[in-house]
């Protein structure tokens, strides 16, 4: 029997700002992410969604404000989170070796890695590509492999940066299926998208971002039924101007 590690959640962003090139790209964002519901960060291009995700994941340091992991296992926050990017970055090795690499970095012993690699490939429907060079896979398959690689590390939080932005509908459907499975397995999903239909399909909670600021947040049901701000209403109606 394995004992589930203590949680690293909740994650709190407190007045987070990020400046680059003399411009404020993320402006005083304060948010809390609790375990459970899928949070989708929604907003138009250039709203600061990807930056916010990178700040939360620790890839960028905020210019001002704090990113705080507040769970009992906050000390090990780095080990219990993962991120999948818009364009999958595959190492120049086989699909299976890509997953094995991630597990090795997490200190998973050699004996345990093989079954976990096989399980991850199977979950993503990629078992027949185990020995195929990862870069020889289609973009959709690479994105599924990126999700399998992240999932294999059993993250408590998975950050997804527009994972279907460059995929066709069939590949998008497959990726969304895997995301749903990861969520059902107990991983907190924090995902960015500018795709309203996708947000309606996947979101439990919505954070609506525009010009680097959080304009509105709440349950997806409430957000889509009765947006509280003109900007959110305009975005849902497809009339939001830059």
């Amino acid at each position: 029997m394995t004992i589930a590690p203590a949680s690293i959640l909740p994650l709190r962003l407190d007045g987070v700002c990020y400046d680059a090139g003399g411009k404020r790209l993320v402006d005083g964002v304060s948010l809390a992410f609790a375990a459970g519901p899928r949070t989708l960060i929604l907003g138009p291009n250039g709203a600061g969604k990807s930056l916010l995700l990178r700040l939360a994941h620790g890839l960028l340091a905020p210019t001002a404000g704090l990113v705080l992991w507040q769970g009992p296992d906050a000390r090990n926050a780095g080990r219990h989170q993962a991120m999948v990017f818009q364009r999958p970055v595959m190492l120049r090795r086989s699909a299976a070796a890509n997953i094995d690499y991630a597990l090795r970095l997490r200190g998973v012993p050699r004996d345990s890695r093989r079954p976990r690699v096989e399980e991850a490939l199977e979950r993503a429907g990629l078992e027949r590509f185990a020995g195929t060079p990862a870069r020889a896979l289609s973009i959709g398959e690479q994105q599924r492999l990126a999700l399998a690689r992240a999932w294999a590390t059993l993250p408590q939080v998975l950050f997804l940066d527009e994972p279907t932005a460059s995929l066709d509908p069939a590949a998008t459907w497959a990726v969304e299926g895997i995301i749903d499975a990861i969520h059902r397995a107990g991983t907190k999903i924090v995902m960015t998208t500018h795709d309203l239909a996708q947000a309606r399909r996947l979101a439990d909670d919505i954070v609506f971002l525009n010009h680097g600021r959080v304009v509105e947040q709440g349950t997806a049901e409430r957000f889509f039924a009765s947006p509280r701000t003109p900007e959110a209403a305009a975005f849902i109606a497809g009339t939001l101007r830059w």
Binding site: L59, A82, F85, V89, L91, R93
Partner: peptide, 26 residues
């Protein structure tokens, strides 16, 4: 430039990153 975010996200320190890049750039 291509790998940085992914390797950092996976938890690779500088030494591991150098070894990975040397292998991938073989």
């Amino acid at each position: 430039a291509e790998y940085e975010e992914q390797l950092r996200s996976l938890g690779a320190g500088p030494r591991r990153a150098i070894a990975t890049l040397l292998w991938d750039g073989r």
